[in-house]
């Protein structure tokens, strides 16, 4: 039976339009990043990547991402467990609240942290009198990164855990397994791929966050510059090749993220085909 849009002409026209527009709109920028980064040869690219300021920015970016992931992981798993395994008043409100970081502009996210923990803020003033500085230092960067990345793990887990239901866990518990055993032996194996994808997304966003971090970091070269801030400075200094060298590193992480997603989806579809 013929379906809508199956006529050869319509079909070719639509596929052609989709491919052409995607190539111009999505693929071309991706190609341009690497073309710019290597426009003066591999040696110049390498010099740009291996200079002290870039290396420091890479290090800080990775440390922030590594600290963000476990915190978001614990929160994401706890929230997903809570809203998919129990019903209680306020469940829907919690699920709406978790979307706040997706709706709030990154600049506003940075600002609210600066206001509270900055020198003039309610908490920041008290901290300042105890010689603790969070803003314009790495703890501030960590705090806003946690803010912008915290929904990812929970968002990946909640639909999956809702679909799976709690029967297997209930069976384990009624057979005498402890809560932790149930979680490690029953829940975790069921959710590990979604959990992994949540971590990959958290990492991608943590590494690439710009707006929120630029408000609270102070962007001091060699001290509080993350990779996205570093490339902005290079770009503003008319060092486009240097900026695109850093951009290429970040684009590489983005490509690995996409590859991981495609791999996980392929795995899931294969498992579906078997069962």
């Amino acid at each position: 039976m013929r379906r809508i849009g199956d006529a050869p002409l319509v079909r070719r026209l639509l596929i052609g339009a989709a491919l052409l527009l995607s190539a111009l709109f999505l693929l071309l920028p991706l190609v341009a990043i690497f073309a710019q980064a290597f426009s003066q040869g591999v040696m110049v690219f390498w010099e740009n990547v291996s200079n002290a300021f870039t290396l420091h920015a890479i290090g800080l970016t990775l440390v922030i991402a590594l600290m963000t992931i476990p915190i978001c992981l614990v929160f994401g798993v706890a929230l997903a467990w809570l809203v998919t395994r129990f019903s209680f008043p306020g469940r829907r409100i919690l699920q709406t609240l978790i979307d706040i970081p997706f709706a709030v502009s990154p600049v506003v996210a940075g600002l609210i942290y600066l206001l509270l923990y900055g020198r003039n803020g309610w908490i920041g003033g008290w901290l300042d009198s105890h010689d603790i500085q969070l803003m314009f230092a790495w703890p501030g960067i960590l705090m806003v990164t946690i803010f912008v990345t915290c929904p990812f793990v929970a968002r990946e887990l909640i639909p999956l855990m809702q679909a799976q239901g709690s029967r297997e866990e209930e069976a384990a518990v009624t057979l005498g397994a402890s809560g932790w055993t149930t979680f490690w032996r029953v829940t975790l194996p069921n959710i590990r791929w979604a959990l992994l994808y949540g971590i990959i997304l958290t990492n991608a966003r943590a590494v690439g966050e710009f707006g929120a971090v630029s408000v609270v970091s102070g962007a001091i070269r060699g001290q509080t510059n993350t990779l996205p801030l570093h490339l902005e400075q290079l770009y503003q200094d008319y060092n486009a090749v240097g900026a695109f060298a850093s951009a290429a590193l970040l684009a590489l992480i983005a490509l690995l993220t996409l590859a991981a997603k495609a791999g996980l989806e392929w795995r899931a579809s294969r498992r579906e085909a078997y069962t």
């Binding site: 999505l26 920028p29 710019q36 690439g208 710009f210 695109f244 951009a247 970040l250 495609a262």
Partner: peptide, 26 residues
């Protein structure tokens, strides 16, 4: 088709500052 499907998520995976300088340069 699979590549096109994967490409759809690029704007989410690519840091916004990278997208910014790339579009400005293009």
């Amino acid at each position: 088709k699979r590549l096109l499907d994967a490409l759809m998520d690029l704007p989410f995976a690519l840091p916004t500052a990278v997208a910014g300088i790339t579009l400005a340069t293009l």
